[in-house]
Design a protein around this nucleic acid. Structure first.
Length: 261
DNA sequence: ATGGTTGGCCTCCAA
């Protein structure tokens, strides 16, 4: 089973790129963030035509919004509003696994909770998410947590840990909070399970750097965590760097986890 | 140290 997470940055604008992803990788489950469309305008027909019969989405006008496209019917699906009414989470149960798709707040530019309410919001969102899992789920459950978590937690998840230490997405407090969340139910970071900690791996390159390919100043903001009881089922991972060079790309690339059935 | 781009939508906000 192949599961993808991708911040698509407008699902309507990038339907052709979604089609390309599907043709090239045939994922069973596609988890999207920043679909930027209200539910009434969700492109149901176009996506059904791509072979995904089971569509679960939670959108709002202009901002945020998440979706899960599946070839397999979910036996359950639900939404948790962790902070306010922003559409940033949706969960499904597919086969024996509960998949949680997150779009964690980006947090604005200034890494100071007093000066920047968005940064405060981001940190509180992570606390609430962690608390939901420790209250409502246990280590015995089969769970996948994935999405645009908007934090690059480790040194080699960014092009320069030193130069980004005060940049939102890689500050000490964010890194600590994300790792605490991961450890609270002993989730395994699929990327670092396969890729040694001293090797660079990114899923995002800023639009603002037109020379992104040459300078390669990326960050690993998109993640797939699995519960420890799924450790043996992980087969492979890919961060599709090529997708950053597609026509009119998202600034994030799809990140794929392949599981043994 | 600074500014750089994109998407949605309606004049600028969020990323």
């Amino acid at each position: 089973m192949k599961i993808v997470t991708w911040n698509i940055n407008s699902i309507r604008l990038r339907l052709s790129l979604l089609k390309k992803l599907i043709e090239e990788h045939q994922p069973d489950v596609i988890c999207l963030q920043e679909i930027k469309v209200e539910d009434l305008l969700f492109p149901l027909d176009s996506i059904s035509e791509l072979g995904y019969k089971y569509l679960y989405y939670s959108g709002q006008k202009s901002y945020h919004g998440v979706a899960i496209l599946s070839k397999i019917q979910a036996t359950d699906n639900f939404i948790v509003e962790f902070y306010n009414e922003d559409k940033r989470h949706i969960a499904v149960k597919i086969k024996d696994i509960e998949i949680h798709n997150f779009y964690i707040p980006a947090g604005g530019d200034i890494p100071d909770i007093k000066e920047n309410p968005k940064f405060k919001h981001k940190l509180e969102y992570i606390d609430l998410a962690q608390n939901w899992f420790t209250t409502n789920r246990s280590k015995q459950d089969k769970i996948i947590v994935l999405g645009d978590l908007n934090i690059a937690p480790h040194e080699h998840d960014v092009w320069s840990s030193k130069q980004l230490k005060n940049v939102v997405s890689h500050t000490g407090i964010e890194r600590e909070k994300l790792i605490n969340f991961q450890n609270s139910l002993e989730f395994i970071d699929s990327a670092r399970h396969f890729m040694p900690m001293d090797q660079k791996l990114y899923t995002w390159w800023s639009y603002r750097n037109l020379d992104w390919l040459k300078s390669d100043r990326g960050r690993r903001l998109d993640h797939i965590w699995v519960s420890a009881n799924l450790k043996g089922r992980m087969k492979s991972i890919y961060s599709l760097k090529d997708a950053r060079s597609w026509t009119q790309p998202s600034d994030h690339v799809p990140y794929i986890l392949e599981l043994h059935e």
